[in-house]
Amino acid sequence: MILLDHLCRDYLVGGQTLRALADVSETIEAGEHVAIMGPSGSGKSTLLNLLGCLDRPTNGRYVLDGQEVSGLSTHELSMVRRHKIGFVFQSYHLISRLTATGNVELPMVFAGIPRSERLKRVAETLDWVGLSARAHHRPDQLSGGERQRVAIARSISMKPRLLLADEPTGNLDSAAGAQILEILETMNRDGLTVITVTHDPGVGQRAQRVLVLADGEVVRRVPGREIVEAYADFNREQQASAGSSS
């Protein structure tokens, strides 16, 4: 479903080229649950932005569902995001003046779906994340966990093939976080491809496999169940390397 072929992303900072992602080649099958881990600045967000078609690679190919998307226009990328990709963000990114219904409805508004159909889908998705009773509440009237569930409902309202979650439990307590992970796993079991960026090995171990990034490269590919130990080793190596270089 996803093919990354020697994907690179450079940024020009202060006249100098900074390589944020270096030669990433990876295949992610449809229906997989993959976690991306790594220290700050390792390129996790850059990779997520490329996967979400929010950004374009400097070099390399990104094929999504058989479509080469790395060379698409801004307009075409919007259409890919609209129909194929759902986003869940760490800080929810709900529009504060809109109710839960209004927020979940948003992608469908831009897709031009008639209001009656939109409201039907909103009711279904909010019901699916257990927030039917909160449909007319604004974000400031919801708990953190509820806000993230609204964000999840929004991300699946257009029935995407790929869900990208950026630290989905980062702002939540453990109970709410567990609930969110449960929802993501359920969606994954139903066939949705889920890619989660996280710092938390506890979240990573719920994925089928984990890609560990360092300095813009995938340095480890680890099955999710082994990530806790593997990530501890990785961190030790990183610290040792940092100690020796200093």
């Binding site: 307009h75 609209r82 986003f87 990114h93 929004r154």
Partner: peptide, 16 residues
């Protein structure tokens, strides 16, 4: 700004 970013993330086109 974030609202605009969000709109784009969910598939809003520039003219929208």
């Amino acid at each position: 700004t974030f609202e605009v970013g969000l709109m784009k993330a969910v598939g809003a086109k520039e003219h929208q």
